[in-house]
Design a protein around this nucleic acid. Structure first.
Lengths: 185, 185
DNA sequence: GTCTATATAGCGATAGAC
DNA sequence: GTCTATCGCTATATAGAC
């Protein structure tokens, strides 16, 4: 558990990349094995079924989410600033995991939807004490959701390792965060 | 063009319902034909390929989007109120089209992502004159995106004709709209 | 305009050699 | 632990009867 086999990680990374770059339909066992540089048999030694492959991805996402939450709670600018700022994708491992899970959720994999809901709830719990009321919390969360969704749509097919949307950056993002904080605090 | 063949509409409706209720993967030609009550050959007479089926759905969505935009611009409570209020799904034909297009976009169909981007831009143009600045417009748009995305995730697999998320309703929604208007106007 | 039958390819998964 | 070979199934699409 402390040090997963290299091949396992390579397969998981390849599966994740295919989900992000080409969609759930293209993320087949064949394609994943090829992208990871192993044979299909080799892949199926580590993940006995496609369902196990998905579970592996979600487990990894849960760990990254726990790290992210810790960072959010101790962020210098406060949780709200951290939350919104990091909702604009940076291409981090956590971002990639979230997008991949989003693709799976939209394709009808309940375990992925559940994981995303779980993570969103942990954000809600972390943000609630720092805003005025439930409505303000909902507003903050929804802005993050909106940013995330737009980036997810833009990370679509054929954009290579595509993580660069037309969403607010730099000064625009700062202004958006300032306005949100003003409305929510 | 004024009156499309009945079978065409039935097929389009069935395809859309499958996309929403069971995901892109389950929305096969076989399943669509069966749900529409025609044979696969019959379906393929109207839509010569799956790509044409998708195009048909998006064309229909574009028409519904034009109607929606008109309603938004002449809404009694103003475009912002209308926009946010209708971002919580009601199960309208437009809502269903948007979710179906979202599923296709996430599965890597560029034409669907393009349509969604186009529609979002038309909302932006309609809302811009009614808010303080670009940051305020972005905030409003993102809240709608967030609501939409959450509902889309919840409209997932196995929820029947599933359009009923845990998103704000009634008084909660009114409060959210009031807060948004306060921040943006 | 709608059907049945079929061609072709790709899917997830298994078996067994190395 | 990784490979090749193959099974059984389902996908999109075509051909041609009615």
């Amino acid at each position: 558990m402390a040090r997963p086999p290299l091949a396992r990680t390579k397969v998981l990374d390849a599966f994740e990349a295919l989900l992000i770059d080409e969609g759930e339909r293209a993320a087949t066992l064949d394609a994943t094995a090829q992208a990871a540089g192993v044979s299909k048999g080799g892949l199926l030694y580590h993940f006995a079924s496609k369902e196990e492959l998905i579970t592996g991805l979600i487990d990894r996402l849960d760990e990254l989410a726990a790290d992210d939450l810790e960072q959010m709670l101790s962020a210098p600018g406060g949780p709200v600033d951290f939350y919104i700022r990091t909702s604009v994708l940076s291409g981090s491992a956590f971002d990639r995991g979230l997008i991949a899970a989003g693709r799976l959720a939209q394709s009808g994999h309940a375990s992925a939807s559940d994981a995303l809901r779980r993570i969103r709830q942990s954000w809600a719990d972390g943000i609630r004490p720092h805003v005025r009321d439930d409505t303000a919390m909902e507003l903050v969360l929804l802005i993050g959701d909106g940013l995330y969704y737009n980036n997810v749509l833009d990370a679509a097919v054929g954009s290579g390792s595509g993580l660069a949307g037309p969403m607010p950056t730099g000064a625009q993002l700062d202004a958006l965060i300032a306005l949100t904080l003003k409305a929510a605090s």
